[in-house]
Design a protein around this nucleic acid. Structure first.
Length: 270
DNA sequence: AAATTCTCCTGAAGGC
DNA sequence: TGCCTTCAGGAGAATT
């Protein structure tokens, strides 16, 4: 499922194909995503050139001269670059057509989004109140520790809260907490500065490593060329409940924390 | 105010 | 073989 590494992999994959290219058409086959795809996208986008392909949190931003197209992959979405005449599949909901190719959104569970804004994208309601990027210097141990003060919520929920830090979804939250030796259910306010620093560092490390591998493919995720991401083979705990802990050999436990499945070692993580 | 629950959706997997 | 139930989850909205 697309988290930050998968979205960044998608961004870097599609950018060379569409940056500087003119949009010749828009196809909407199924407008009912998380929010309806605007009906006038054809008029807004037709003939415009994609100036830049950027990412903020898990949102992809296609910058045009008259505004920005905001794309979100939800949890089962993927974007591919295809020949223009490729026959669409069942869940291929949206195409942007270019002279040489087609950018196609596939999203079986339809939790994704295709939105438009003609305002500065930083002011969009979905983006304006987001926390810092995890790979930025702004996100560090001191910052995380400060955010955790007086908070009784589980640390795993805190690092998955987009107002605190963006882009950390369930897979990488589990992995980072294991690598940092912190129990996912530990109250956020009861973690020392040193351990917050370790956690912030592990979040950065695991995200950066996953970007290099092209993200994690469990079921749906595909890179822009249709290939899977290869970070799944480097996951230490996610999806491995019952297996021996890579650190101590004890069976990994699974527990729901904040409606999310969490995997951890009760011996290595405190 | 903070924390929890609900909601959208499809497909895989398990039970009988 | 097939139908039913359960689970998975990003993140905004609603509720406690």
């Amino acid at each position: 499922m697309p988290e930050l590494p998968e979205v960044e992999t998608t961004r870097s994959g599609i950018a060379p194909h569409i940056q500087g290219q003119r949009i010749s058409g828009v196809v909407v086959r199924q407008p009912r995503l998380r929010w309806p795809i605007p009906g006038n996208l054809g008029d807004l986008l037709g003939g415009r050139t994609v100036r830049a392909v950027e990412r903020r949190a898990k949102y992809l931003l296609l910058r045009l001269s008259n505004g920005s197209l905001i794309l979100h992959l939800g949890m089962s979405g993927s974007l591919r670059i295809l020949p223009r005449d490729t026959v669409p599949g069942k869940h291929d909901h949206f195409d942007l057509l270019f002279k040489q190719c087609c950018l196609r959104l596939r999203d079986p569970r339809r939790f994704g989004a295709v939105l438009w804004t003609d305002q500065p994208v930083e002011q969009h309601p979905l983006i304006a109140h987001l926390g810092p990027e995890p790979l930025s210097e702004e996100f560090n141990g001191v910052y995380l520790h400060r955010q955790a003060q007086q908070r009784r919520v589980a640390i795993k929920n805190l690092i998955m809260d987009g107002r605190v830090v963006v882009g950390v979804g369930n897979i990488y939250a589990n992995e980072a907490l294991f690598r940092a030796g912190i129990h996912p259910a530990r109250p956020a306010g009861r973690i020392s500065l040193a351990r917050c620093a370790r956690l912030a560092e592990e979040i950065k490390q695991v995200l950066a490593a996953a970007i290099i591998q092209g993200g994690t493919t469990l079921r749906d995720f595909q890179q822009e060329d249709g290939k899977p991401g290869y970070f799944a083979q480097e996951l230490l705990v996610y999806g491995k409940a019952g297996s021996p802990c890579p650190g101590c050999g004890n069976p990994l436990k699974q527990q729901r924390i904040g409606q999310r499945s969490s995997v951890y070692c009760s011996r290595c993580q405190r």
